[in-house]
Design a protein around this nucleic acid. Structure first.
Length: 788
DNA sequence: AATGGCGCACTCTACG
DNA sequence: CGTAGAGTGCGC
């Protein structure tokens, strides 16, 4: 690796230092540059130097600009005011921006020592918590060495286990500790157990500090782990899924529903993935110190190592491309790349970031319109359809329109909305007049076409590089290390390219450009609209449009569309080259839900084995907020709908409660703290109370409890429910019953069958198959009887 | 203290 | 009971 493992800034005795970790050791040096900001005023007692720079937004600023240099970060922070420009840039980032070559002098060029780590914890009936449930096994594996499994003898004593494993980890001295969801589970759990056992977590660090969990300030959830001198790489949070965001572009092709380690590992064809039943998972106590536990944990470690071999090389490449330490890239947010790159580029041409996007345009920043989404035709498309997508639409618009903070300005806004139009001025400025329906105004944007903008030149460079890598990949063996290396590289470039538009529009970005963002989305809406009209010109073919793609049936050949598009672009933008081109993907069949914009099913063309996949789009059809029974109907009946057609017999089995499992009818609800509910009858409150009744435990806020819907039963005789309850017994019985993974469906005699049948109805209704619902059938029959 | 963007479907909760 | 607004999930 050509970059260090970890770098951080620190202040000792008022001196600004930098600490860099590489090859297992730290160097502490005087910072090669001191923290500074720019200011229109000299600051007393501070080294202020008059510099020749220009401001990004206030381009006609003619006053002085001082570079004010401080002894250390603390001094800078004390002096930072509204008048200070770029004062929020951290010193460590300043190093990467101003002197990127500096950090490269400290490469971690020894082979990386990468440790996979996973723990198994005691559980009995309920989800484990670190106060009551000990760790019962820990698995580790350094690089490709054999997997090591350590197990506790008893379910409630992990002291010896922890000490043994900590000693071993110290001995192995890993640079990187790899986990799956370790930020939120394994690491805090280990630390909590250390606290319980009075063992120091400094065992795990290189520098004698304690392991530290970094919280997200809005959600309060852990978002990173500091293990002094090492990097903690959490595969799930960093590469697979963090909250809503699917992080890795590769995953899209899998169309995964679940993102737990085993599902992801299986999707990547990891061999021998062992999954235990829920019964075992909720009673891990029963397998303490057994081969079963050993094998299970071994499989988890195998998955962890397998997945990190796929993802980690790309992250290392990212650090090398960006020329920052590995820990920075592991813990960064997606916007970091853009911040660093633009700060470097603008710093190099003496432009100072005087405002953030939100400061420069408060109203538009908060109210700008985004992409265009519209559905025109719904229902079943049995004979197939096409998806015509614009390739890398937004990045190519940056090229086409020469968009950059330095070339693009918002000239003015006008109250009256008008159609999109373009105009070229005599001095070669392209002006766009863009209607924004969300901000409810016309936005006039000016682009200087006399010079190429830095941002657009940068996008061009990245796209050229990526195209070259992809070309090279075609000549390589798919299983060769070179191929994997190229793949990691091209994927990184893709991610950078795609994040630039978002960075332009980001409220807090210093070198963003709302003008460029509005030019992109506004032109995107317009061009897609024009394309739709072209495709529809003699017949209604378009089914739906969304951002950069159009679904349609029939229509001209791709060549014909390209021909039209190229001419259109050239004329519209007064230029002789079009950067906008299309891709055409055929599907065997499709179904677009009525009264919905983005809910549809697609059936892929048969692959070389003749296999066809059903792709489900949209939360409503995916049933992410619904019970598994609902999704089962969409999955199975949806596929039949697009292939063989659906009969009454096909849907019948979903109405038969004998076919349901408990999981099929179980909902989950994340509960808050009990006293934060204003209404005492809330579902959340009921579940918390049932939990307390049953397990005599208070549920933590944020816990997800499972429940089923039950029919309110007749009042139970009072004497049977009065025991140990002092408060008067409520007359009303609950409609919701708490269930745990240890319950069985037979424990729920009064399941609300009608409710669940209605859920099946809903699924069929969304597939426009309401006439197959039994209630409709009955109604029909009755009607015919009545007719007689 | 530090955060890529917006659009649409859908659920949940508070409140009248 | 109906509904507005917040929150969540998915998609591009």
């Amino acid at each position: 690796m050509i970059v260090p493992l970890v770098a951080e800034s620190l202040v000792t005795d008022g001196r600004q230092k930098v600490k860099i970790w590489r090859n297992g050791e730290a160097v502490v040096i005087d910072s090669p540059l001191l923290p500074y900001f720019y200011s229109p005023l000299e600051i007393p007692m501070v080294r202020s130097e008059l510099v020749k720079k220009t401001l990004l937004y206030e381009t006609d600023y003619s006053g002085d600009i001082y570079k004010c240099v401080f002894r250390n970060e603390n001094d800078l922070r004390k002096n930072a005011s509204k008048n200070a420009w770029e004062s929020r840039v951290k010193l460590i980032d300043r190093l990467y921006i101003d002197i990127p070559e500096y950090i490269i002098q400290y490469p971690n060029n020894n082979e990386l020592r990468i440790l996979s780590l996973d723990i198994e914890v005691d559980s009995f009936l309920t989800f484990p918590n670190a106060v009551e449930n000990a760790i019962i096994a820990i698995g580790i594996q350094l690089n490709d060495m054999p997997i090591e499994i350590y197990m506790a003898k008893k379910h409630n004593d992990d002291r010896d286990l922890l000490i043994e494993v900590f000693k071993r980890i110290k001995e192995l001295d890993p640079d990187i500790i790899v986990t799956y969801n370790g930020i939120r589970f394994d690491m805090p759990y280990i630390c909590d157990r250390c606290k319980y056992n009075r063992i120091s977590t400094t065992w795990l660090t290189r520098d004698g500090t304690d392991v530290e969990h970094i919280e997200d300030h809005t959600t309060g959830e852990y978002k990173a782990t500091n293990i002094g001198g090492r990097v903690h790489y959490d595969i799930m949070v960093r590469s697979v899924k963090d909250g809503q965001k699917v992080r890795d572009q590769n995953l899209f092709q899998f169309n995964l529903k679940h993102f737990d380690m085993k599902s992801v590992a299986k999707a990547y064809n990891c061999p021998d993935v062992i999954k235990e039943s829920q019964e075992v998972m909720s009673n891990m106590r029963s397998i303490v110190n057994t081969k079963q536990l050993h094998d299970y944990l071994e499989s988890d470690i195998r998955c962890t190592t397998y997945l990190r071999k796929i993802y980690l090389p790309a992250i290392i490449k990212q650090a090398e491309n960006l020329q920052v330490p590995l820990n920075t890239v592991v813990n960064m947010t997606p916007s970091y790349t853009g911040s660093i790159i633009f700060a470097r580029k603008f710093g190099a041409i003496d432009i100072v970031g005087d405002m953030t996007v939100g400061e420069a345009h408060p109203f538009l920043s908060a109210n700008k319109q985004g992409a265009w989404v519209q559905t025109y035709r719904t229902g079943l498309f049995k004979d197939g359809l096409r998806d015509i997508d614009v390739t890398s639409f937004y990045p190519n618009l940056i090229l086409q329109l020469n968009l950059c903070p330095t070339t693009t300005k918002i000239l003015r806004t006008e109250d009256e909305l008008k159609p999109y139009s373009t105009h070229m001025t005599e001095d070669n400025h392209l002006q766009l007049s863009i209607p924004d329906e969300r901000a409810n105004c016309q936005i006039i944007i000016d682009i200087n076409m006399n010079k190429q903008g830095i941002a657009s030149a940068f996008v061009a460079e990245l796209m050229r590089d990526r195209a070259e890598i992809k070309k090279r990949m075609k000549t390589l063996d798919k299983n060769s290390p070179e191929y994997a290396d190229c793949d990691a590289n091209q994927l990184n470039l893709k991610i950078i390219i795609n994040s630039l538009t978002g960075f332009f529009g980001m409220q807090y970005s210093l070198f963003g450009s709302l003008a460029a963002y509005i030019a992109i989305t506004g032109s995107g809406r317009y061009l897609l609209r024009q394309m739709k009209d072209f495709l529809d010109k003699d017949e209604e073919r378009v089914i739906a449009c969304n951002t950069d793609g159009i679904y349609l049936t029939g229509g001209p050949s791709l060549d014909e569309i390209h021909e039209w598009l190229e001419a259109f672009i050239k004329e519209k933008y007064f230029c002789d080259k079009s950067y906008i081109w299309l891709e055409d993907t055929p599907y065997s069949a499709g179904y677009f839900q009525k009264n919905a914009e983005k809910h549809y099913l697609l059936l892929t063309k048969p692959d070389k084995n003749g296999k066809q996949d059903l792709i489900i789009h949209g939360g409503g059809l995916k049933g992410s907020a619904k019970i598994p029974l609902y999704s089962a109907v969409i999955d199975e009946i949806g596929l039949k709908l697009l292939t063989t057609g659906v009969t009454e017999a096909d849907v019948e089995k979903f109405y038969n409660s004998a076919n349901w499992s408990l999981e099929d009818v179980t909902f989950g609800r994340t509960v808050k703290q009990r006293d934060s509910y204003k209404n005492g009858g809330e579902l959340g409150v009921q579940l918390i109370d049932q939990y307390k009744d049953r397990f005599d435990k208070v549920v933590h806020s944020g816990t997800r409890l499972n429940y089923v819907k039950v029919s309110p039963t007749k009042k139970v005789a009072k004497h049977t429910i009065r025991r140990k309850v002092k408060v008067p017994v409520e007359e009303k019985t609950s409609e919701y019953k708490l269930v745990t993974i240890f319950d069985k469906l037979s424990d729920v005699p009064n399941l609300d069958l009608d409710y669940y049948k209605a859920e099946v109805d809903k699924a069929l209704e969304r597939l426009d198959l309401a006439d197959l619902c039994p209630k409709t059938q009955v109604a029909k029959e009755q009607k015919s009887l009545f007719d007689f």
